[in-house]
Amino acid sequence: MSEAGVIHDIGYQRYEGPKLGRGALFGALYVHGIRAAFGLGRPAKSKIFPWLVAGIGLLIAVINAGVKAKANITLFTYYQFDETMAVLIVFFVAIIAPELVSRDLRAGVLPLYFSRPVRAFDYVAAKVVALVSAVWLLLGVPQLIMFLGAAFTTKTGMKGVWHEAGSLLPGWGYSVLWAVVFSSIALLIASATGKRAFAAGGIVALFVVTTPLVGVLSILPSDKARNLAGLASPETLVTGVSTWLRKNPRQGIDIGSFGPIYGIELVCLVAALLLLLLARYRKVASL
């Protein structure tokens, strides 16, 4: 007597809905990255640090707006606000970048991502844009509050509002520079390991090591060495580019006539970081 197999109907059906393609996959990865950056949909402990940073930024903005309204004194310009928040942004990207990429490496889910129409470029672009957006929001939203406080208390009417808007927009652009440079560095370092603690330590270490190096170079007797010292650190590199673009040597750092060098290094640095990050994930996708 032969044994007969039994086929059970478990109700499996083929997917017959719309196929949204790479754009939808990019959007899903981007939204997931933004949510992860601020701990949305995560346990309460995941929300503590990002919202603490956001709260500090908002508090500074509110205090600045209040003093501006009461005493007509500006504690921080839009540029100075970014520079004041620089240390917190370093720690923010050190915590969030590993959350965005190291977790995927450790969990081994990248082969699942790349088995679908999503490509290495889509994955990298979504992570970069998500972290850049998160950092920009931490800087840009408080700057908007500073603008609103100044605009609603101006004594020169619409002329004062337009003047303030003319200061806000370059300030937002400056925030983009900080976000792009810091995010690119943090994601590349985080992509090297699946251990988030190691990734976070490596990101912080890079900024900690390069900052004193600028201080050492800036005390050299050569004027050229002092002018070029800012190239040694991401923070002073961004500040140097701002000094060059604003054409005001009294604001920012002393870069002499080497402004174009700062601009070229920033562009080349970001391009190199993003290309290395893409190469890293193309290698993973090919495994």
Rank of each mutant, 00 (worst) to 15 (best):
V118K: 09
R119N: 04
F121C: 02
D122C: 09
A126L: 10
A126D: 12
K127C: 10
K127A: 13
K127T: 10
V129K: 04
V129R: 07
V129M: 10
A130F: 11
A130C: 08
S133I: 12
A134T: 09
A134S: 14
V135L: 08
W136Q: 14
L139F: 03
P142R: 14
Q143S: 12
Q143Y: 10
L144V: 11
F147M: 12
L148V: 13
L148N: 00
G149D: 00
T153S: 15
T153I: 05
T153L: 05
T154H: 05
T156D: 15
T156C: 11
M158H: 04
K159Q: 12
G160Q: 11
G160N: 13
W162P: 05
H163Y: 01
E164D: 15
E164Y: 00
A165L: 15
A165Y: 11
A165E: 13
A165M: 15
L168K: 10
P170R: 00
P170C: 14
G171R: 01
G171W: 00
G171I: 07
W172P: 13
G173H: 07
Y174F: 10
Y174N: 09
V176F: 13
W178Q: 08
W178C: 03
V180C: 01
V181P: 02
F182D: 01
S183D: 00
S183T: 04
S183P: 02
S183K: 05
S184M: 09
S184F: 05
I185G: 08
A186D: 15
A186C: 13
L187K: 06
L187T: 12
L187N: 05
L188Q: 03
L188R: 08
L188Y: 03
I189D: 12
S191C: 10
S191G: 12
G194D: 03
K195W: 00
K195I: 08
R196G: 13
R196S: 12
R196I: 06
A197L: 14
F198G: 07
F198V: 15
F198E: 04
A199R: 01
A199C: 09
A200D: 07
G201Q: 03
G201K: 06
G202R: 06
I203C: 03
